[in-house]
């Protein structure tokens, strides 16, 4: 057990020495790894913040039910009854004449309307549902469209759904980006260690001749990959934190300008921890692959 610890400690210090032996090379690797990790992390944060931002804005969650032109008082009563029974939230009846009056208030519209022989607008119900999750709102809309004498249902919260889709696509792109950069990180480590193995070929040969196990030969490289990834991850964390700090001042001002109450959410501890951990893990994987390929047999 003591030997085991001694061997690991010495492999670890070997790895640290290797990192310190070429400070410039190490620094460059850390910049590459740090940047590769920070980009997807920053993207993730941006999406997170956008979602927060969207969540903070009051959304006009409305469903408009447009009645067929021939609908009469009886049909309106029928719809009103159904709305009451369905307990969907609040609603309001907008007769076609009222709608026309409102439309006329908009600049330029009266001239257009004047050319029409009659009021082109339908009678409508505007529903504000209680449950504003996009799925719930949509299913309500589907229900309404099946009701008699309802000609058309319009979802005014369309943009919310679009935004949701946009977020989903954004996330997928970030995952793909992260995969790409993660792969790059593995390749960088793989190659760094390949060069180290070449440079230390003599030492490795001698060590094997006098009784070094495979594990002994590999260990310093594995620690090296792990440490380099870990430090790269920490570097990425500092990049993201610094970026967020630089942006948050101007953004706060911008938001305040529009009277909003929102502020940039930076990297939390969990995300910072995962970023560092992922860096270390990927570095270790790169090292593991490299020693497996390059140290197969003396």
């Amino acid at each position: 057990m003591r030997r085991f610890l001694t061997q690991h400690a010495s492999a670890f210090s070997d790895a640290v020495h290797k990192l310190l032996a070429f400070p410039l090379g190490t620094l460059l690797s850390l910049v590459v790894i740090g940047t590769a990790l920070s980009l997807p992390a920053a993207g993730w944060l941006v999406l997170d913040n956008l979602r927060d931002l969207a969540g903070g804005v009051p959304k006009p969650q409305q469903i408009s039910l447009f009645m067929v032109p021939s609908a009469d008082k009886r049909a309106f009563d029928e719809v009103e009854l159904r709305l009451r029974l369905a307990r969907v939230g609040s609603w309001r009846f907008v007769p076609r004449d009222e709608a026309l009056e409102r439309l006329k208030a908009i600049e330029g519209v009266p001239e257009i309307l004047a050319t029409l022989p009659k009021n082109p607008l339908p009678d409508a119900f505007i529903v504000e549902p209680e449950d504003i999750r996009p799925e719930a709102v949509e299913s309500l809309a589907r229900t309404f469209s099946n009701w008699p004498e309802v000609e058309h249902v319009q979802l005014d919260s369309e943009w919310v759904r679009r935004f949701d889709v946009f977020l989903r696509i954004g996330r997928l792109m970030i995952v793909m980006l992260a995969g790409l950069f993660g792969g790059a990180l593995i390749i960088v480590t793989f190659n760094t260690i390949r060069l180290q193995i070449l440079a230390q070929a003599d030492e490795i040969e001698v060590a094997r001749l006098i009784g070094a196990t495979n594990a002994f030969v590999r260990r310093p490289f594995q620690y090296f990959g792990f440490l380099q990834g870990l430090l790269g991850g920490l570097f990425a964390v500092s990049l993201v934190v610094a970026g967020a700090a630089l942006l948050s001042g101007p953004l706060d001002e911008l938001v305040a300008l529009y009277g909003g109450r929102w502020s940039l959410r930076g990297l939390d501890l969990a995300l910072a921890g995962s970023l560092t951990g992922i860096g270390a893990l990927l570095g270790w994987v790169g090292a593991q692959l490299s020693v497996a390929v390059h140290l197969r047999k003396s």
Binding site: T6, Q7, S10, I210, F216
Partner: peptide, 11 residues
């Protein structure tokens, strides 16, 4: 020192 490092002897 190398053989003893391999054997895991304390420094």
């Amino acid at each position: 020192l190398l053989p003893m490092k391999i054997a895991g002897l304390p420094a």
